[in-house]
Amino acid sequence: MKMWFLGTGAGRPNKHRNVTAIALQLPEPETGWWLFDCGEATQHQLMYVPLKLSKLEKIFITHLHGDHLYGLPGLLSSRSFDGGVTPLAVYGPIGLKAYIDTVFSLTETALDYEIVIHELEEEKQGIIYEDGRLRVEAGPLVHRVPCFGYRVEESDTTGPLLADKARALGVRSGPLFGKLKAGEAVTLEDGTVITPESVTDGVLRGRIVTVLGDTSPCEMAVLLGKNADLIVHEATFAAGLEEKAHEFGHSTTIEAARTAQLAGAKQVALTHFSGRYSNDELSQLVAEATAVFPHAIAATDLSMVKIDRVHERRAGQDEISS
């Protein structure tokens, strides 16, 4: 998995950064990607990263403030021009459908694909998407308007097949190998049952990525980020400005770090920085966060974070990332 930060600013674009948009490039063999928020000029930012609009599968909007939403109509329209014909699922708060329908009606925009809009009930937490490989959970955060955080959880899979061991047990190469790789037990002609665990090298642990919208510190942010490989958390203000941050439903660097710490996350990427901070000042903001949680980084526009999958090997073998 790769997380691309298309915009890391708060409120409005400035010389240092664009407004919020984050792309999650799905793990191979998938070729698609998902988008979290779509601030103004998101489609322009996409020109600088290796993601095609025609491959966009899902959009998750955290809330209906303009800096997270104003780029959506243009991006949806451009997807048709870029050859997008498959259905596109869009998730977000109540009012999202009215916004899209109104803009498209007034501009007489016609698309070459179907948009399926899923509006989320305010204050409700739960699974909003699941396909056997990936699951998405949404939960309400604390902001001035209804706002959601999203937790993307990948399923565990069996480790690499130990082909020589499988052959030694009588498994012939071919379809039976495929079943074992897929985690299915197979039965040989003599009735012997070969389980995947006996001929595979451990487990590939599923990754967990949490993308939080604008929020003041809250329990839901910790729940959605529990044991995450990566939490994307807003850090609109520097430490010491907690009162101002909470007045507008935001967090400081230290509060973002504390959420990651409480959640037991592996890493937190700070984003949604106020325009008062230049990119040269981001190192100081990170220093504030790492004083609480050592594995904090500052996201910058067009930067990418790779989320590796942990290969948990059998007893006596080391864990490695892949």
Rank of each mutant, 00 (worst) to 15 (best):
P73T: 00
E108I: 02
A98S: 15
D101S: 07
A98E: 15
A110H: 13
T62L: 04
L96R: 01
H118I: 02
L75T: 01
H65S: 12
P87L: 10
H63P: 00
H68W: 02
H63T: 09
I115N: 02
V103N: 13
G92N: 11
L120E: 04
V103W: 12
Y113P: 03
T107F: 04
V103I: 15
D67N: 11
L96I: 01
V116C: 07
H118P: 00
V103D: 14
L72Q: 05
T107A: 09
T109W: 01
F81E: 13
L72W: 04
A98T: 10
S77D: 01
A110Q: 08
I115K: 04
E114F: 00
L64Y: 11
L69C: 05
H118C: 00
A110V: 13
K97A: 11
S80M: 08
D112E: 11
G83I: 15
L69D: 07
E108C: 05
E121D: 14
I115W: 02
F104N: 04
T107P: 00
A110M: 07
H68K: 09
L88S: 07
G74V: 03
Y70T: 10
L120C: 05
A89Y: 11
L111D: 12
G66A: 14
T109D: 03
V90A: 05
V90Y: 03
P73F: 02
T102E: 10
Y99I: 04
I117M: 06
L111T: 14
Y99V: 08
G74L: 05
Y70I: 01
G71M: 10
E108H: 14
L120S: 10
T102K: 13
D82F: 11
G66T: 12
E119G: 00
H65Y: 10
T102L: 13
G83P: 03
T107K: 13
F104L: 06
E121Q: 03
K124S: 02
L76W: 06
D112T: 13
P93N: 15
